[in-house]
Design a protein around this nucleic acid. Structure first.
Length: 697
DNA sequence: GACGGTAAGCTA
DNA sequence: AGCTTACCGTCC
């Protein structure tokens, strides 16, 4: 992996030499209709004098038609038919949308060429860098160019496009805020910034110190990049993180030099801002995953924060991941890259181990100064001696930590999402089921396993109801709300607030309060939390997912990073677990390195490359029969997949194809080719192909 | 996927 | 013969 000049963007697969001169193609009357049955729709048409051939990416996501098609540019559209503009063409007899990729003198096509039907808009919305990026992303994910373009180019909003371009606010660049440099906390931080300001391409996997400084650090890196005359692109997991970086950028850059792109803006405003980027009015972008394709000109820096968050994963085909897309962009444009978070994913660890990026972290002394004091409560957790806490069934350690901390400010309580932890109650009298040992609430990890205690984790195999003696259990929904009620009773007089999927708190004040939140919805507290309780570690860790461990650590650290330095954090899990040890020592890097080593041992991603094929068993078999899989490929399964709620049709199965990491590109190519064979053959059932699927096992 | 060409199948 | 339906190659 070396740097490559990103400026010239020949689209791979587009560069075959045109052989047939355009004048062999039908001119004017010839094109309209032969034999006079159908009258020519337009009068005699004439191709443009210069570069009369337009290569068009038609909006068709069929794998076997995933290549450009040539059309003639009629003279009257000569001026409007610019590379990157939206066009409408006749394709297989029907009118379809497309993008004009380039204008050339001659076509390589032997047959007749049709004329462009119209230029939808002369706005060159498909920037050359984005076009070639989209081609590469499509190939990487065994998907089509058209599918990627649907993600990369927002739908047109004609009124917004026509709006008079507002005059520059004229605001002279605000000098970067002269506060202390957040990067000074990191030994390699300053040299990272220097490399950006010298226009080089530093690439770092950044383990951020706990606390709120990360947003300012990102903003500073962006500011330095802009000062050096290049653009910057920042991708965040959700709108709240976007808002934080947006605010930090405003503080750093002033108004008008960057835009925030999120889905909540609505189509008009979103398109307005996106156009501002395209037209070079804004040189920096912060946004959620769709922004990964934003047409930032002369890219100097890409940033991805919290790359392990599963909301980064694009749910639409071909399911590209921003980490991959931004890495590709940085690589091909010579931009710097910053992949940061409080934790470290195994995927980012691969980037470090292969030498693509450097690790950027603070030294231990600073980490120790900034990190919380983490305690754990395992099976031996003792019930609180305090009477009120005893009625609330809170283990002593958690109770004492919270009670002490509430003197100094808010306490964060992290509980898994509603439905994540199915609570249980007596099947007859509906009394909630509690642990015989510590009186914590019982829950069922899955329908087959025995109930366990949400506080202490002890398995409760021989439960019977203390009220009525019944021994069968029924599921009840337990979520943050219920936990909030239980906690409220343990701390009378302390306000309890909840933050979850439906009602997310933006932030909380410095006053004492219990803040019960689901993972990812934790509101930052002004001046930080005085303490945090991380409950239900067993459920998170017990999930049957390859990434359960790293994901649990990520959730814990993201919550614990909101606690004041040296504040207490109590985690409900066994101290011997590697995730707990990593949290206690605040050392996500060693954890990720070990985890990656284990994956390598077991042949799992990201040490190996995988693709999942989801379809009926017959369709999977056919696809695999057509696919010339690379050497060393191994097919696992297929196994039945649980039916999606509301899904129609026959039972689906899923097969996994595993290859050595180096064969990833060959795997994608083989699957794409096999999909092409299938679609050309008009196979009725489609196979969903997902390269690097997020959820595994 | 949608079109249009050709081949096979049915109605007089 | 004259119409339908079925299949399949092509789509610029």
């Amino acid at each position: 992996m070396t740097e490559d000049g990103g400026g010239t963007d020949l689209i791979p697969g587009l560069d075959d030499v045109p052989r047939v001169p355009a004048d062999k193609a039908p001119q004017g009357k010839g094109a309209g209709g032969k034999g006079g049955r159908k009258a020519p729709k337009k009068g005699a048409r004439r191709p443009a004098e210069e570069r009369p051939v337009a290569r068009v990416a038609v909006d068709m996501s069929l794998p076997h038609l995933d290549r450009p098609f040539d059309y003639l540019v009629p003279v009257e559209l000569d001026a409007k038919a610019v590379p990157g503009c939206r066009v409408r063409v006749r394709f297989a007899g029907q009118l379809v949308d497309g993008f004009l990729l380039e204008r050339v003198e001659e076509s390589g096509h032997d047959g007749k060429l049709l004329y462009l039907e119209r230029v939808t808009s002369p706005e060159p919305v498909l920037a050359p860098e984005v076009a070639s990026l989209a081609r590469e992303v499509a190939d990487r994910y065994a998907g089509t160019f058209a599918d990627v373009l649907r993600l990369a180019v927002p739908p047109r909003h004609a009124r917004v496009e026509a709006e008079a371009v507002e005059e520059d606010a004229g605001e002279e660049r605000v000098p970067a805020a002269e506060g202390e440099n957040p990067w000074a906390e990191y030994p390699a931080g300053v040299s990272f910034l220097n490399a950006l300001s010298e226009g080089r391409a530093p690439r770092a996997v950044w383990t951020a110190l706990p606390g709120p400084e990360w947003a300012a650090a990102i903003a500073r890196a962006v500011a330095v990049t802009l000062e050096a005359g290049r653009g910057a692109l920042v991708v965040m997991a959700d709108g709240r993180d976007v808002a934080r970086v947006d605010a930090a950028l405003k503080a750093e850059l002033g108004e008008g030099r960057h835009v925030a792109l999120t889905a909540e803006l609505g189509p008009a405003e979103r398109y307005r801002r996106w156009l501002a980027v395209l037209r070079g009015k804004a040189r920096a972008v912060v946004g959620t995953r769709a922004a990964m394709f934003a047409p930032v000109a002369d890219l100097g820096l890409v940033v991805l924060w919290d790359d392990g968050d599963d909301v980064h994963a694009e749910p639409h085909a071909p399911y590209p991941h921003p980490r991959e897309v931004l890495a590709l962009r940085a690589h091909r444009t010579g931009a710097g890259a910053l992949i940061g978070g409080f934790t470290r994913t195994t995927d980012a660890t691969v980037l470090v181990e292969t030498g693509w990026a450097h690790a950027l972290a603070a030294d231990r002394t600073r980490v120790r100064r900034a990190m919380p004091r983490v305690r754990y409560m395992g099976e031996d957790a003792q019930l609180a001696r305090d009477a009120a806490a005893r009625t609330a069934r809170l283990p002593n350690l958690a109770f004492e930590a919270a009670r002490g901390a509430l003197e100094h400010g808010p306490v964060l309580v992290q509980v898994p999402r509603r439905g994540y932890v199915p609570g249980i109650a007596c099947g007859r009298c509906r009394t909630p089921a509690h642990c015989a040992a510590c009186q914590g609430p019982l829950a069922l990890p899955s329908s087959h396993a025995a109930p366990y205690c949400r506080w202490c984790g002890r398995i409760a195999g021989d439960w019977h109801c203390p009220e009525c003696g019944f021994f069968q259990l029924r599921a009840v929904v337990v979520g943050a709300k219920r936990t909030a009620e239980e906690l409220g009773r343990a701390f009378p007089g302390v306000p309890v607030r909840t933050s979850g999927r439906e009602a997310i708190l933006e932030r909380v004040g410095p006053e004492r309060a219990l803040v019960v939140s689901t993972p990812g919805a934790e509101p930052p507290a002004e001046d930080g939390y005085a303490a945090a309780l991380l409950l239900d570690g067993w459920v998170l860790l017990g999930r049957p997912d390859l990434r359960a461990g790293e994901e649990t650590l990520r959730r814990w650290m993201n919550a614990a990073a909101l606690v004041r330095p040296e504040g207490p954090v109590v985690v409900a899990a066994e101290g011997a677990l590697p995730e707990v040890q990593a949290l206690v020592r605040w050392d996500p890097v060693t954890y990720a390195e070990r985890e990656l080593a284990e994956r390598r041992e077991a042949g799992f991603p990201p040490a190996a490359r995988m693709a999942s094929l989801t379809a009926t068993p017959a369709a999977i078999r056919e696809l695999l029969a057509d696919a010339r899989l690379p050497d060393g490929a191994e097919v696992l399964g297929p196994v039945p997949v649980p039916r999606q709620p509301g899904a129609e049709g026959p039972e689906k199965e899923r097969a996994l194809v595993r290859v050595p990491r180096a064969a990833g590109a060959a795997l994608a190519r083989a699957l794409k080719e096999a999909q092409g064979i299938r679609s050309a053959r008009k196979a009725t059932e489609t196979v969903r192909v997902q390269v690097d699927p997020l959820e595994l096992i």
